[in-house]
Design a protein around this nucleic acid. Structure first.
Lengths: 142, 142
DNA sequence: CGGCGTAAGTTGGATTTTCCAACCCACTGA
DNA sequence: TCAGTGGGTTGGAAAATCCAACTTACGCCG
């Protein structure tokens, strides 16, 4: 039997490999250069090269030359990359709550002044989207 | 230099390996048994064995025996596992928008009646938590 | 000019993971 | 008794990863 077709699997096909999301985290934090991304994530340079190439090919990052002499590049988020912010927020929230021990290494403050506690809601009604409040509406068979 | 300490990295240390999130997706969809998880994800049985053991050890899943003769088990979500629902929702949303082509393989309907369009908001004020609306509030140096 | 430093990789070889198919054991229902 | 199911385990090949050293292209300092 063929595995289930699913956007989670598709998403993981793009950003699910080791180091991909950590490299993206660095870009979100403003670290856009190869050496610093390698140092801050701990990824080995050869694997990082492959990951960044894949993310560029997938349209998640853009490689931008910011200096011609000497040639220097930075990696910037595309719309697709920026949209991953939500995923990172929820992953961080889960890690904060269930994995990280002791003081949290990174805390975000929202523009309203509060420490961010992210929550997922239904855009239509504004109520929280819990697993109990959802039903499957459609599934292709093929 | 040591890599950045971060809950995203910690979270990925638990659920970041290949097949882990897909196995969890199956449990969320009600598929709790080894053979079916293997078939629906496409993971090879040996790797799946290791992944499930790790998820149980990490407190994300529980192995529950539902029949003594013959001995049969199912994998159930713990609180920690259920909390991953948000991550999966956002990952699916991103995949739907930027990766999956053609008709979406899976659509959720919220209890309000609308097709779910998940959004991340700040619990305190209810406004959307975009990357522009966040500032770093603290970071440990060590 | 010579030498040192930095950015962004590339290369080679050892180590780990992963994949895949086949096998195993306990049990059941026909 | 014999095929079938659930839940793995095993062995060997293939792929991915890690690590340190090397490279190229340039700027800066004395």
């Amino acid at each position: 039997m063929a595995p289930r077709s699913c956007s989670i699997a598709n998403a993981l096909g793009v950003v699910g490999e080791r180091w991909s999301l950590l490299a993206l985290r660095e870009v979100f934090l403003g670290v856009t250069r190869f050496d610093q991304i390698a140092a801050n994530t701990g990824a080995s340079r050869d694997v990082l090269t492959v990951r960044l190439k894949k993310l560029v090919a997938a349209g998640v990052l853009e490689k931008h030359q910011y200096s011609e002499h000497p040639p220097r590049h930075e990696y910037l988020l595309t719309d697709s990359g920026r949209a991953l912010h939500n995923v990172m927020l929820m992953l961080k929230e889960w890690g904060d709550t269930y994995v990280t021990e002791g003081a949290l290494p990174l805390v975000w403050e929202h523009s309203c002044g509060a420490v961010l506690e992210p929550r997922v809601v239904c855009t239509a009604c504004g109520e929280e989207a819990t697993s109990e409040s959802l039903t499957r509406a459609a599934e292709l068979t093929h």
